[in-house]
């Protein structure tokens, strides 16, 4: 009788183990985002201008350089931060100053943001300043975009492909 009770308890404990494994493997469900909202991803990587403008070297200056270091233009490595702004329907949604990457601050400045937005049509305005200017913008873009619930829209920026695009 005692042996049967022990075996029965073992079955119960094994069942409890399987239940614990199975339950937390699926439940409770995780609500990552509201299905009633649209989502926007902003991603751009862009090198801002150098802190000081590049200097064109004279032939004599070029000749003075070591043969493997010769170049026609001399640029400081450090770059400016990239200023990025995004408005939705005229209201500020993002204001970001992205620092250049790299140990010498000579790399790309990157912006990656994700936020929710109510579905429907919205006016999206984006701006970038990548030079040393203190006012005004180097790239400006505006578009009326329709956002659908439960779907992503992606805002990217590639100057070589015409600047901003919203997909």
């Amino acid at each position: 009788m005692r042996k049967v009770a022990r075996a029965a308890l073992q079955i119960v404990l094994y069942a409890g183990f399987a239940y614990a494994v199975g339950y937390l493997s699926f439940w409770p469900r995780y609500h990552y985002a509201s299905p009633d909202m649209a989502a926007v991803k902003v991603s751009l990587s862009h090198a801002a201008n150098h802190v000081k403008p590049c200097v064109k070297l004279t032939p004599q200056q070029i000749a003075e350089l070591a043969p493997n270091m010769r170049r026609s233009v001399l640029c400081e490595r450090q770059r400016l931060p990239l200023i990025f702004e995004l408005d939705v329907d005229g209201n500020a949604a993002l204001r970001i100053e992205a620092l250049p990457s790299g140990l010498w601050s000579d790399g790309l400045s990157s912006v990656y943001e994700r936020f929710d937005l109510s579905p429907g049509e919205h006016r999206i305005s984006t701006r970038i300043r990548d030079t040393a200017r203190t006012d005004g913008w180097d790239y400006v873009y505006e578009e009326d975009v329709t956002f659908a619930a439960g779907r992503y829209r992606t805002i990217t920026f590639k100057p070589e492909k015409g600047g901003f695009s919203i997909r």
């Binding site: 199975g22 493997s25 409770p28 995780y30 439960g150 779907r151």
Partner: peptide
């Protein structure tokens, strides 16, 4: 009894709003 199944193909244009989650 409860086989592990996938949760529909990934679609990077669609927000994966609610998920069955492996909490472990």
């Amino acid at each position: 009894v409860y086989p592990a199944v996938s949760q529909g193909p990934a679609d990077l244009d669609v927000v994966p709003a609610t998920l069955n989650f492996d909490w472990y």
